[in-house]
Amino acid sequence: MPHLVTIDNVDMRYGGAAGTLAVSGLTMKVGKGEFAAVVGPSGCGKSTLMKLVTGLHIPQSGVVIVADKQVTKPVSIVGMAFQNPTMLPWRTTLDNILLPLEIVERHRHRLRTNKKEYVEKAEHLLETVGLKGFGSKFPWQLSGGMQQRANLCRALIHEPELLMLDEPFGALDAFTREELWCVIRDLHAAQGVTIILVTHDLREATFLADRIFVMSARPGKVLKEHAVPFARPRDLEVMYEKAFNDMVHELHGEIASARVVA
């Protein structure tokens, strides 16, 4: 499988030569179309990983390669979604979703003339995540779970090759979270997009991902890599199987010992 993201022996230090070393000797490869999850103790540099892959930070040593190009500036083939949906309150949900198109170079010049086509695409995405007919509502008229669905639409509207998710379901209640797991599972299956999910939730990682990277405490590096064996499409019921629980248990043990070392 060709790799979409290759991180090779990367060091990233904040605040000059004497600053904190956030990640050190970080190496990981994510294949095209793969769903990868990154788990680890808090402060392990998961957010740094997000910024390295999207090109918001350039590492001091080592290389980050995304889509066969070394990352030296922000890469516009990614979509990002954070725990905080950060919808702009003065725009309707539909206009919020269209926002990336006003930025990305290859879309911004044809947005005005091809508005109808883009709006159709946004409405189709809204339908996919179960928000059909909510495009004209303002974000603050939506519940937290609905805002997070819209946030996913915004991250996907410009057809990114890579979707970076930083604990996108962290602030949601358990049932909404499971619903959204299924939404993201179906999006991944339907669109063939590569996804890197940063999360604290081990069941979430095991349910969704093909491959799980366990990171060490600061300075972060990959301690262990797991291939998730469960066949797709996965049903929520898979979480009650013994093999699933064993895997979650094993991940839990690894993170617990990574915390002790720190």
Binding site: K51, T54, L56, P74, S76, M80, F82, P100, I103, V104
Partner: peptide, 19 residues
């Protein structure tokens, strides 16, 4: 976060200010 989302898409300072 908003700034990160937009900058990752290649937004310039002017874009972020205007939008």
């Amino acid at each position: 976060e908003t700034e990160d989302v937009l900058r990752a898409l290649g937004a310039k300072k002017l874009d972020i200010m205007l939008k």
